[in-house]
């Protein structure tokens, strides 16, 4: 497919055209990089000093730990709530279905930053209980995660063959046994790839919590750059950590997917 789309004809005059398109490619890249090279004030490079971050290592590490903790909590609690919501959807009771659907739609459609401000500033007016920035951040991100994960769980449960439900019914399994030992293990296997995607996007989304200074990596990075006046080093370092961990995690889950696919092939389904 990619061969068909490429600029030069697949078969005739291959060698000559290849050179022409490579030449154009080099030319465009040179123009692009040259434009950047002219406009960048290179003086900043000589002042770069990443060692300036060393005194703040504890703060940054603590921020990273909090980021990881928030992501894990968002996914784990969100998954539990999401699965419960997805099971409620299977009950076929109209009012419950509507309520669950509204919940999921609100959780998915509201931007995280709005949820965050709402929980942090508006909710105390309603309940009279002040929450700390961390608590507000956790509530908001868990709420949004539960919406996304309810949708994924619903799709996962629907992917389990109907015969499995019928078999569980025919065996007279109790609801708890049916869900915990028959349906959910099979559903979870289908859910691994979308689950991995959502985990990564919520790991990235934790940086949004910095707007109410929760104290995770991004807020720590902003605070450090305000004290050491070195935004380039600090923010680049934070970005690098997010990218490195994101790539690491996506590689890890790809390996996990291959492993489960292989195992289910060996077992035969």
């Amino acid at each position: 497919m990619n061969r068909l789309l490429e600029l030069e004809r697949p078969a005739d005059g291959e060698a000559q055209l290849f050179r022409l398109s490579t030449f154009i490619s080099f030319l465009l890249a040179a123009v692009l990089l040259g434009w950047l090279g002219i406009h960048v004030k290179w003086g900043f490079v000589s002042e770069l000093n990443f060692l300036e971050l060393w005194p703040y290592r504890v703060a940054l590490l603590r921020g990273l730990m909090l980021t990881l903790m928030i992501s894990v909590l968002a996914i784990v609690i969100g998954l539990v709530v999401g699965i419960i919501l997805a099971i409620l959807l299977q009950l076929q009771v109209r009012p419950i279905r509507w309520m669950v659907k509204t919940y999921v739609e609100i959780a998915r459609s509201t931007p995280l930053i709005v949820l965050l401000f709402w929980v942090h500033y508006a909710l105390p007016h309603l309940t009279g209980v002040e929450t700390t920035a961390l608590e507000s951040g956790l509530i908001a991100i868990v709420f949004q995660a539960s919406g996304y994960l309810a949708d994924i769980s619903r799709a996962g449960i629907q992917a389990v063959p109907l015969g499995q439900f019928e078999a569980a019914y025919a065996l007279g399994l109790r609801a708890r046994t049916k869900w915990l030992t028959v349906i959910l293990p099979q559903a979870l296997k289908v859910m691994i790839p979308p689950l991995a995607n959502v985990s990564i996007s919520f790991f990235k989304a934790t940086s949004i919590l910095s707007v109410i200074t929760v104290g995770e990596l991004m807020s720590m990075g902003l605070r450090v750059s305000e004290t050491n006046f070195r935004p380039i080093e600090t923010l680049t370092f934070c970005g690098f950590i997010y990218i490195a961990l994101g790539i690491l995690f996506s590689r890890g889950t790809q390996a996990l997917e291959r492993l489960t696919a292989e195992r289910s092939r060996r077992v035969g389904g």
């Binding site: 949004i208 991004m218 380039i232 923010l235 970005g239 990218i243």
Partner: peptide, 15 residues
């Protein structure tokens, strides 16, 4: 596609 939107925004604004 890998960088968090927040880092992107702050980086462009500050750096």
């Amino acid at each position: 596609r890998t960088i968090p939107e927040m880092v992107n925004i702050f980086w462009i604004y500050f750096c």
